[in-house]
């Protein structure tokens, strides 16, 4: 984690970087257009709590829990979701 702090500010932590088990709070959604809209519609709205459940066997996409249901997104989409870390998961 300390290495990351040197290269990027803590505020720009993307959901795609979080390891399984981590709980985060959504800060905002970057980007434009349809993907962003869908992410918002599916409940990844600013302030929402998200838990990283697991990565797919090949490492991508990633499964999350948000608004009491399970949502999966590719890393490419999860990169748009900027989050604050609430509780760090054990790095598996």
């Amino acid at each position: 984690m300390t290495e990351e702090c040197l290269t990027k500010p803590e505020t720009e932590y993307a959901l795609s970087e979080a390891e399984p088990g981590t709980r985060v709070k959504v800060v905002h959604i970057k980007g434009k257009g349809a993907a962003r809209r869908r992410i918002l519609d599916m409940g990844m709205v600013p302030g929402a709590e998200v838990k990283v459940i697991r990565k797919a066997p090949m490492g991508d996409p990633i499964e999350f829990e948000v608004k009491n249901y399970k949502l999966s997104m590719r890393k490419a989409e999860a990169e748009l979701v900027i989050v604050d870390i609430l509780e760090r998961g054990k790095n598996l």
Partner: peptide
Amino acid sequence: APFIMELPP
């Protein structure tokens, strides 16, 4: 297309 999909119970 983006992959943003529900995993239903």
